[in-house]
């Protein structure tokens, strides 16, 4: 039983990260019908920005409330800027080209970021993994038995931050003018433009928002698993993409459910069957969802527009 509760805690902690990253995929797909494969790498860049900011602040300040907020703000702001630049210079010129062109560009940007960051020139960090500073001082919040189950403060804080970000996003998409414009662009961007919606600006803002979320997710990931290295985004990005598809890509709560589900499935597969089956089950799960419900658990069936 103790094992089960510990697995549940671990699975939720991992799933929260997948969910946050999946949100970025889903939002961009929602407005552009583009799978932004560079998303995981934007997350990685966000982690490095947070790392540099924390180092600048120094040991005391980085774990104060103000310091942590500053780290989040700088990293999310930095990533929003990077998201804007990527959209402006890599995707916008290709908007009227076939979708495949933009997709390949996305993969190109993904490689450029993850391998570029392995260089050791100028501000680039180099390939060696680094330990992310403890910006949330680890404290045990709940210990059951002889440390049979351990719940740490950062696990709870991460989930709270993630839930906060998700709720704000849901509010933004469904309750604000910007959200309405976003949904209009997603529905039909040509008609939206005719209605006077600044399509380019809405798409740019969506990218910035998704990238900022990625940075937030990345920081939580780095707090959880402590290692920072340039290839970290590829793997998390892939898993989050799976989560987004399971939930129904383009669907905000779907991405959250998909992420949590994937985190839990992976955890329990490792915990209760052979640990080598984890990825096979995760991707097998994706295949089953695609076979049975190609639109994902929450997605709506839409006729392909020609």
């Amino acid at each position: 039983m103790a094992d089960f509760i510990q697995h549940l805690i671990n699975g939720l902690a991992a799933g929260t990260i997948y969910a946050l990253v999946a949100l970025g995929y889903t939002m961009v797909y929602g407005v552009l019908k583009l799978i932004n494969f560079a998303h995981g790498d934007v997350m990685m860049v966000g982690v490095y920005i947070a790392y540099a900011t924390a180092k600048q602040l120094g040991r005391g300040a980085q774990s104060s409330l103000l310091g942590v907020m500053l780290i989040f703000l700088v990293a999310m702001g930095g990533c929003a800027l990077i998201g804007f630049l990527i959209e402006r210079f890599a995707y916008r010129p290709l908007r009227e080209k076939p979708r495949l062109t933009a997709l390949i560009t996305a993969i190109g940007i993904s490689f450029a970021l993850s391998y570029g960051f392995q260089l050791d020139i100028g501000f680039l960090p180099g390939a060696a993994p680094r330990a992310f500073p403890e910006i949330i001082r680890p404290t045990e919040w709940l210990v059951i038995g002889d440390r049979d189950v351990v719940l740490w403060n950062w696990q709870v804080i991460s989930v709270l931050i993630a839930v906060g970000l998700m709720v704000s996003l849901q509010y933004l998409v469904f309750k604000t003018r910007f959200g309405r414009a976003m949904r209009a662009v997603s529905y039909d961007h040509r008609t939206a433009a005719l209605m006077g919606i600044p399509v380019d600006r809405i798409i740019a803002l969506t990218f910035m928002l998704g990238s900022a979320l990625a940075a937030g997710a990345g920081i939580l990931y780095a707090i959880k698993d402590t290692a920072v290295q340039p290839l970290m985004g590829l793997y998390v990005g892939l898993k989050a993409f799976v989560a987004a598809v399971i939930g129904g890509i383009g669907h905000v709560p779907g991405a959250v459910v998909g992420g949590l589900l994937l985190g839990l499935v992976e955890e329990f597969v490792v915990g209760y069957t052979a640990s080598t089956w984890r990825d096979a089950v995760a991707f097998g799960f994706l295949i089953i969802v695609l076979l049975v419900r190609p639109e994902g658990l929450f997605g709506r069936i839409t006729a392909e527009k020609v």
Partner: peptide, 20 residues
């Protein structure tokens, strides 16, 4: 006996089982 794959950063599932 538990296993992971190179590139993993979260070993909590395996370690929880080992702990048991």
């Amino acid at each position: 006996t538990e296993a992971y794959s190179k590139g993993d950063t979260d070993f909590r599932a395996q370690l929880t089982t080992i702990k048991g």
